[in-house]
Amino acid sequence: MNQHPAPQLTTPARTFTQLLPSTPRGARLARHLAVTTLHSWDAPPDLTERAELVVAELATNAVTHGRVPGRGFRLSLTYDDLLRIELTDPRGDRLPHHPPTPTPLPTGGRGLLLVSALCDHWETVAHPPGGKTVVGLLSVSAIAEQT
């Protein structure tokens, strides 16, 4: 009798998407929903903490710089081998860019430095008809894999 090895089942990617209002409350809710979702997916604490900071910054930027009256922003999370964070807002004319090293005087402009430090990769892509999506990729850290 031929015996074939059992097929390896891979865990399907887990996804979450939510449309939120472009308000400070919507930005706080995005952060809370991201953390709650990652906890429900049993994501490592280190990954959850980094994702919380990235979502908080991107959501704040969407509310501050990407707001169009009457239109919200969308938070999407996809988790398999990596965590993919997507934040889509309706303003495609104000694209974030990889920031230079800040000078000591400005009170703002450091958020994307934080995103750059916490993400393995991040980029901005067009979201037709006129919006943009900021995508951040986070891997599980070596510390989290050891626990």
Rank of each mutant, 00 (worst) to 15 (best):
L47H: 06
H32S: 12
L33M: 14
P44Q: 08
D81Q: 15
S22H: 14
E86S: 10
T60M: 10
L19M: 00
P102L: 09
P96V: 14
L20P: 00
D81F: 13
D46G: 08
R84N: 10
Q18L: 10
E49R: 07
Q18F: 04
L87W: 04
V115N: 06
A34Q: 02
H4Y: 10
A117S: 09
D42L: 05
P69I: 11
H121D: 15
N61G: 01
R50Q: 10
T101E: 07
D120G: 06
H121F: 05
A13T: 15
T103N: 09
R14G: 10
V35R: 10
V55C: 04
R14S: 06
L19Q: 10
E86N: 09
D120A: 04
T107C: 03
L114E: 06
L75F: 01
R74L: 13
A27T: 11
H4C: 12
Q8V: 12
A59S: 14
H65M: 07
R67I: 01
D80I: 04
A13Y: 13
A13C: 08
E86T: 11
W122C: 10
P99L: 01
D80T: 06
A56Y: 03
A51S: 15
P96L: 07
L114V: 14
D93C: 08
T10H: 05
G109D: 12
N61C: 01
S22C: 08
T37W: 15
L77V: 05
D89K: 06
L77P: 03
V35H: 11
H65N: 07
R91P: 11
A27E: 11
T10C: 01
G26N: 05
H39P: 03
R31V: 14
T107Y: 05
V115T: 12
